[in-house]
Design a protein around this nucleic acid. Sequence first.
DNA 1: GTCTATAGGCAGATAGAC
DNA 2: GTCTATCTGCCTATAGAC
Lengths: 198, 198
Amino acid sequence: MLFMARTTGSHAGITGPRVRQAALRLFAQKGYAAVSMRAIAAEVGVQAGALYNYTPDKESLLFDLMRVHLEELLAQADFGAEADPLTRLRQFVEFHIRFHADRPDEVFIAYMELRNLSPENFAQIEALRRRYEDRLETILRDGAKQGVFAIEDTKIMTLAIIAMLTGVNTWFRSGGRLSLDQVVAQYWDMVRRAVGAE
Amino acid sequence: MLFMARTTGSHAGITGPRVRQAALRLFAQKGYAAVSMRAIAAEVGVQAGALYNYTPDKESLLFDLMRVHLEELLAQADFGAEADPLTRLRQFVEFHIRFHADRPDEVFIAYMELRNLSPENFAQIEALRRRYEDRLETILRDGAKQGVFAIEDTKIMTLAIIAMLTGVNTWFRSGGRLSLDQVVAQYWDMVRRAVGAE
DNA sequence: GTCTATAGGCAGATAGAC
DNA sequence: GTCTATCTGCCTATAGAC
């Protein structure tokens, strides 16, 4: 048969993604603990029991959203080690701002709902985040070693830069006073000065 | 009578503060939505019904914690307008780091639990926070006007500095690798460079 | 794969005794 | 001011029909 008979309901294979998307939106809007499985089911258009075909429990839903988000972050955060540190730092700043501005809900959840993970899942998420921080710290250390940057403590500088850049998400709105290009340019100025380049 | 008879139980006047302290600790640790009135009561050592002698409802407990925190912040954030902008900026950086490091639970709640406020209460809290941001923005604008700072957009610089400084709370632990004095010194270096001073 | 029904438990808030 | 008892309702997760 070239054309397979549709199963009843014909939504096989798409409900799963819709469940994750509904959970993402609601968790970001109201907070994990304040969102019931019934609310997620209602957003998808099914009954609560049906959700358990796609997740073993509510926490796994949260964990998977965080894990996938951070794995995508790591997959895309590639700053060629052959380039000079100043170029790599500029690439990092631009990448971080754009990636996070594109995913406000994921970013919000990944920072705000860590308390709702089991210790094992928490450790996994923290390990992924740590790997991302290490990408920036490597750039800073390379630059400091070559004398391009003047940095007293690369660990603090790493955390300070990430906090500053991630803060963009709390106020940036597409279509507002500033374009994302302008935001990137201004934060790049601040970061370049902060590391003592040029 | 110079000496008043004690009322039965003799705790009149101290249960209220203990309720707020228990709520603060539990909200910060587990999140507002995940903490029940029964859990707060257990921490204080009373039954759940007794809490309603001290708060009309659960949300008021949260709101009052945030409001008092931000009012204390504003009351202490006084940077003499007569001094030069660079000195006032240094005072701001030191004050912000120390004040926030002293109150990790209050800071956490005031940033993470905004979603659980009614629209009216949310607006009040945001107004207080905005007043605090304005104190920094005024310093930056004065410095820019006098040519002491080189700042393209004072609003962005304000938010970037506050995000960077508040980020200290996510990793700083008293007794760790760095003293708070060292942290203050390093962040002051970064901020001074970021605004283009000297 | 989705439904209905339900088990078993906890939630916020209130009433009335002491 | 605190207690016990309770109202009313929602919670996560599972069982079994279709």
